[in-house]
Nucleic acid binder design. Sequence first.
DNA 1: CGTCCCCTTGAATAAGCTCAATTAATGTGG
DNA 2: CCACATTAATTGAGCTTATTCAAGGGGACG
Lengths: 243, 243
Amino acid sequence: MEHVLKRLAWTDRLSGDEQDELVGSVSRVQSFEAGATIVPAEVPVDFSSIILQGISSRQKVLESGARQITAFHITGDFCDLHTYVLKTLPDSVVAMSDCKVATIPHDKLDRIFRDNYHVARLLWASTLIDAGIFRQWIISIGRRTPTARLAHLFCELFLRFQIVGLTQDMSYPLPVTQTDLSDVLGLSLVHTNRTCAALRAEGLATFSQRRVTIHDWEALQRTAEFNPEYLHLQRKVALAPSC
Amino acid sequence: MEHVLKRLAWTDRLSGDEQDELVGSVSRVQSFEAGATIVPAEVPVDFSSIILQGISSRQKVLESGARQITAFHITGDFCDLHTYVLKTLPDSVVAMSDCKVATIPHDKLDRIFRDNYHVARLLWASTLIDAGIFRQWIISIGRRTPTARLAHLFCELFLRFQIVGLTQDMSYPLPVTQTDLSDVLGLSLVHTNRTCAALRAEGLATFSQRRVTIHDWEALQRTAEFNPEYLHLQRKVALAPSC
DNA sequence: CGTCCCCTTGAATAAGCTCAATTAATGTGG
DNA sequence: CCACATTAATTGAGCTTATTCAAGGGGACG
């Protein structure tokens, strides 16, 4: 759970008690193989899931067979905190790699939400940051060039992995295929492959062996027009007037 | 404010007291001309804005000059509830038409959040539904054909306008230009124009005189693969075990 | 009446996709 | 540990889609 706590403390500190309460709320830990559905679409659930290990995605398959991935959940991320409030997901959560997943029952979350104003705000903040990430993906897919789009994704994931302490120097694990990446970027597999090659050729970053290695962080950010502001990393969440 | 209350009651009823509290929290009402910035990006604010009249958008302009619109806010929508928790926006809120905007100071929201568990959940739900809309836009831009993409947008907006009672039969006002639409859809203006023409030619919907008229709702939904589930219209928000 | 903004249409260009084939990496059973 | 099977990455080439460029039309407004 250490990664989860790091992740939740993303925007503000958690006290020891708060950490204990969260850890104590976990009801069970399950394993999923790559490709397995962790939370099916449109089925009501009464618990929310947290990725302890591996990477999962939010995705939708259209009638044409085309798939769009709308989010990646990495170690420490809630994949469906939303269901605590809205009960069903319109798109499913699927394991991209083998995953370990912890679940917290909604009634436990509810107790926390009622009793602990501070943690409630952190949870809300977490879903709002997710929403900010969605908007960036819209901007990427809609208007960034394929190269900038991939560069932006690599930048974002680097910082997200850094938060939970899973980067090694300038690289991090990304256990997905280029096919998966293409369904994130809204490109064909072939073009995704060429885009990866382009980033590599320009000495910006390499995606190989399920791992992203960043060679020139400054230049990568520049091509992506990456501004990390939207990830709200600086622990400056508004803690309410009275806190 | 009537539209705002309808909008907030989207997922669940509001009591009279709750309604009064919200209405009483509004500190001021401002007017903005089309094109004016309502909330600038990356500037901390201590209030959140609600659209009383008109339509505004969340948008980002890249260095290339390309613009991507990531959200439309219509009458009754909060445009930046997020700032209550996160204080700054990474992209700006701009008036697409002349707008009337009410603002609620964050300290008032905070009182509501602390004291009224039920309204707090409605506010959270509202931001989560927004997030669901973002994900649908990702799916649209990433994998739907231009025609399906536009059809999907028209379907979504129809239901959103219906909630606040602003549809007339099968039509609703959409005071934006085709240029604006193209920056929603991630297409060029020319292609957006041709896509509008295609929907019209197929007898599905017409966008003209800043107004969308739907001719064949079933067929429009079919081409869009539109499933309204993600808008959570059925007032079935989880009201917590004990409510 | 002229200007501005928006919509519309045609045509050339370019971007990205599909199809197809090859190579590389990973996994499996003997 | 090696042969074989399977999945993933890579490359080439033709084709489709969407973009850009360019020009014309329509309506609102001063």
